[in-house]
Amino acid sequence: MTPELNLFGKSGFQDQEVVSEFNKRIDLAAQNAARLKAERRQNEEAVSPKEESAELEKVLQGVKSKKKPKKKRRKKYSGHEIFSFVLSSAIIALVLWYFVLKKSIVSTVSEYLPRSFEVHQQNSDG
């Protein structure tokens, strides 16, 4: 067997125990690396749809068969929103009415004077 000598190890005489201790450490590190790699590979496999495990498929099927619970329909507008909309519409309508309709009423009144009003006018002229 070729002699082993690790300069990162203990100085002086390196008996087989020291070397084997380092071997153990290396083995442990290699095992850990292999485990990490295997885990990483498993994760990658889980992501790829082709290689899904049977168990995973079952779980997914189970999920598919269940009806999705109906989402609670959210009310589009709350009460105070509707009230404020109606109020603002009313205000706008009143403003319009004031500027457009009231003017026509005034002009109508001025064109067709009531008879009683005419009499009163004549009396005042005389």
Binding site: P3, E4, L5, N6, L7, G9, S11, G12, F13, D15
Partner: peptide, 23 residues
């Protein structure tokens, strides 16, 4: 200097052989 030694299997030899490294 740091010194490192390790025994070489040397049953058939008249002497023991040791590998020695200095760094």
């Amino acid at each position: 200097s740091s010194l490192f030694f390790s025994q070489v299997e040397s049953n058939a030899s008249e002497q023991n052989w040791v590998v020695a490294s200095v760094m």
